[in-house]
Amino acid sequence: MAEITLIEAVTQAMAYEMRRDPSVIVLGEDVGVNGGVFRATAGLHAQFGSERVLDTPLDETTIAGLAVGMAFQGMKPIAESQFDGFIYPMMDHIICHAARMRSRTRGRLHCPMVLRAPCGGGIRAPEHHSEAPEALFAHIPGLRVVIPSSPARAYGLLLAAIRDPDPVIFFEPKRIYRQYKEEVPDDGEALPLDVCFVLRDGHDVTLVTWGAHVKETLEAAEQLAERGVSAEVIDLATIKPIDFDTIRESVKKTGRCVIVHEAARTAGIGAEIAAQLAEKSMFDLVAPVERVTGYDVPIPLFRLEMKYLPSVERIIAAVDRTLAYR
């Protein structure tokens, strides 16, 4: 079995589901012959043809609106937003239609679509190519929001997203698209869309993160271990709905929680996790919850972007602050 990268796992999942289900189609800008600007759809056009892999006119509103229209007529569109920063014109169709079609028609119509977009910074990209908008979508009732952090999880979660009968926003952390390879059997096995994954067991502090920052967070845990601090690392994976049971279980054990995300801090997903811990786990906590996040500024152009993104050092410093409480 070949080892593949995260982006190859994305392609593999789409190809598997397109073979299995003829109603699955892919649409977006440059997703056809070119295979997508990151090559997420590489080979799909050759394999499935122009009636399954559609290059659209260059307009995000068009992509989202067509996807909604196709979905309520029984197709399963996988729409691609070429970059995170281009996703905003799509939001009207996602919020006002995709997310509430089932509810407002009392189940008569529904919208089984996936909106895929690369997300996050750290690849020295031009302006508007490095955003982390997951909280904007997580706030919208009727959506599921998913961000994988490994090739295997990208494969299993994307399969689940495509099979889900309701709209799923699927963000792909572009910084780790090709970070490493692992064996991902092309067996069509989906992963659940309502659990997070404990990547490392620990008993002193719980580190919660997702997407590309799983990398820095695991590195921080490794360095902390060298100092005798045992950190548990949780990959949230599904941003909405959040698997709080797993987080609360972990915090019950560790008494400390540091949340790491690259999106801006205010009203980010970290705020929701901290609020839930305050509501339901206050007496398990021995230290205030810490957030290590992007700042409330647009992600800087690439000369300064690494100063914006949470670093291993910032994560360790936050953990140290929580460790000051006994």
Partner: peptide
């Protein structure tokens, strides 16, 4: 049962119709 419900946000239904038409064509 396949008709869309009323659409208040203005003109978004035009694109949904185009999407439905695309489904019919495919």
């Amino acid at each position: 049962r396949h008709d869309l419900p009323w659409c208040v946000p203005i003109a978004t239904q035009c694109l949904h119709a185009a999407g439905a038409a695309l489904a019919f064509k495919l």
